[in-house]
Simulated scan of single mutants.
Amino acid sequence: MIQYEKVNGNFDLTGKAAIVVGGAGGIGEATAQMYARKGARVAIVDCKDNCPEVAAKIAEEFGVQVIGVKCDVTSQESVDAMMKAVLEAFGEINISLPCLDSWISTAHRISPLLLLRNICLSMRLECSGYARRLLIR
C-alpha cells in the first residue's frame, strides 16, 4: 500500500527548473507564478503570442529567471525547438506540467499523455515501466 503524506505548501524549489505548458494564462499562469514564488526558474510554454510578456511579468514580480517560449505541442519539431531553448536557458528540467486548454485536446486530438511523450522524446528520457505502458496506449 502506498503511504501518502499531506503537503502543507511549505517547500522550496530554489535551483529547480520547471516547464509549464499552457503557462501564458489561466491555471497554467497561476501554476507558473506558484513555482516562481517557491524559487524555481520557469519556462512559460504556450501557443499564445504573449509568452514573453507573461514571463517578464512573473520574473519581475518574483525575482527569478523566467522565459517565454511559443510552442505548437502538436508538432514534434516545435516541441524539440522548445526543449532546446529551455535547456539552453536552464541547463536542466526538474518539473514538467501540462496545463493545456481543453480546446487544444479536443481540436488537435492531443492528450496530456501525448504531450508528456513528446517532451520525453525531446529530453531523451527513460520512462518507468508504468509510464511507458501509459504512453504506448
Rank of each mutant, 00 (worst) to 15 (best):
I104E: 06
M82L: 01
M34H: 05
A17S: 14
W103S: 09
F11Y: 13
D80V: 13
K48E: 13
P98L: 05
V45E: 01
L135Y: 12
H108Y: 13
G23F: 07
A24C: 12
C127D: 13
C120E: 14
M83I: 15
W103R: 03
S128P: 05
V7T: 14
S111F: 08
A18Y: 07
F11N: 07
I27C: 01
F62L: 04
T31N: 05
R124P: 11
V20T: 01
A17L: 08
C127R: 15
K48L: 12
V69W: 10
G129I: 10
G91F: 11
Q76E: 15
A55G: 06
I19G: 02
A55Q: 02
E29M: 12
I104Y: 03
S78A: 12
E60Q: 09
L115G: 06
A89M: 07
D46H: 00
G26L: 00
N118S: 13
L114F: 05
V79D: 06
G28P: 04
A131Y: 11
V79T: 08
A56C: 01
V66G: 00
Q33P: 02
N118M: 11
L125R: 13
K6V: 13
E88S: 15
S78P: 04
A107N: 05
C51Q: 00
A107C: 13
Y35H: 00
A32V: 00
E53D: 11
W103I: 04
F62H: 03
V66L: 05
L115T: 01
F62G: 05
D49H: 10
A32C: 03
L97P: 03
